[in-house]
Amino acid sequence: MPKPKIITSVINNYEGDQRVQKVCGSLQKFGFDLEVVATTVRGNPKHSFSYPVHVLNIKRQAGMGLYAEFNWKLFWKLLKITSKKDILLANDVDALLPNYLVSKIKGVPLVFDSHEIFSEAPTLHNRPFRKKVWKSIESFILPKVKYFYTVSNGYANWFEKEYGKKAVIIRNVPTISPNLDSEIKVQLPEIKPGEKVLIYQGVINFSRGIDKMIEAMQFVENAQLWIIGNGPKKAEFESLSEKLQVNHKVKFLGSVPPSQLKLITPKADLGLSLEEDYGISYRYALPNKIFDYTHAGIPILGTYLPEIKETIEEFGIGKTISKHDPKEISELIHIMLAEGKEPYQENLTKAANEFNWENEEDKLRGIYSDFKVEI
């Protein structure tokens, strides 16, 4: 008897999407067959997975044209490959409408994984038409979705208040399984004797506090800031570091595969997560970088936003800023670099034992146990 198949779709190019890959790995463990529909947005790397990955060639790489093209192509792709025995899994609201329509046409279950509050994302700040489009999709479909999970308590509470829909919380945390890579293959900047390393990892976009990190580096001596990732603001922030004459200590390393990142992050002395309050989606965000830093054994300088601040303070794994002032940020950087990693090590270990995918997987298992497969 064939195993039930889950078809999951995401707008990313998939290679660097750790959350969707972790979910897929768990679903395989639960006994499901898998297919993934991804895109060429921000690159078209070669995929090497034990399940099929369909790649939609997306010509538009930004704006509503990107989302319109993705939704159109995703709808027809799902319509073609979905059978009446399958289960659809949509990642975020930008993939929700095609999944919902195909679930109705084919009569199959739909599961929704909300990585953020899409209608309240910072990219919709001062864009009322775009915000209205996504809000309409979200408010029309989400109350009808039976199987629904998200990444933080703040998000879950907001969804319940807004739509009367209770989401299960599946945090975006690392696995504790051994890393498959044994050596670093990425060219890293040279570190001088006694020089410290600060790290930011994630999408390079506005509202992440990256520009404030760069500005703070004007006042930080004997340290480098490694910015790992890619995104629409990369060129702008590279120009900013040149303008402020800190480009000799602000290093943009580009996109790095997750397996390599697990080897690089522990080399840092301090992890930065300085998201700004540009809307509800960021206000209640709990970024995976917080947990990546924790597993890497490096203390965290975080923002004052509630989910991040509460996590850092509850577990004693770092400090938080009170405002996005470059001078304050630099002062806290100096304090934490002077303290070193040692005072935080015990708490970081405790937090890593709490925040790991193996723990979250049990909750995920509960959601998918409704489908007829031995898990």
Rank of each mutant, 00 (worst) to 15 (best):
I11R: 00
S26F: 02
G31A: 08
K46F: 10
K46R: 14
H47L: 03
Q61H: 01
L74G: 00
L79E: 07
K80P: 01
I81F: 07
I81Y: 04
D86G: 08
N91P: 00
L97M: 05
N99T: 04
N99V: 02
H115L: 01
R127L: 11
R127P: 02
K132Y: 03
W134K: 06
E138W: 14
V145P: 07
G164L: 07
V168K: 07
I170S: 04
R171C: 08
S177V: 08
P178F: 06
V186S: 10
I191G: 04
G209N: 05
I214F: 07
E221F: 00
S239G: 12
K243E: 13
P257Y: 10
S259I: 12
D269Q: 15
D277E: 14
D277F: 02
Y293K: 15
Y293N: 12
H295S: 13
I312P: 03
F315V: 00
G316K: 01
I317D: 00
G318I: 01
G318H: 01
T320D: 04
E331L: 01
G340E: 05
E342Q: 12
T349L: 03
A351Y: 05
N356S: 12
E360L: 09
D362L: 14
K363G: 06
K363R: 13
L364C: 03
S369A: 04
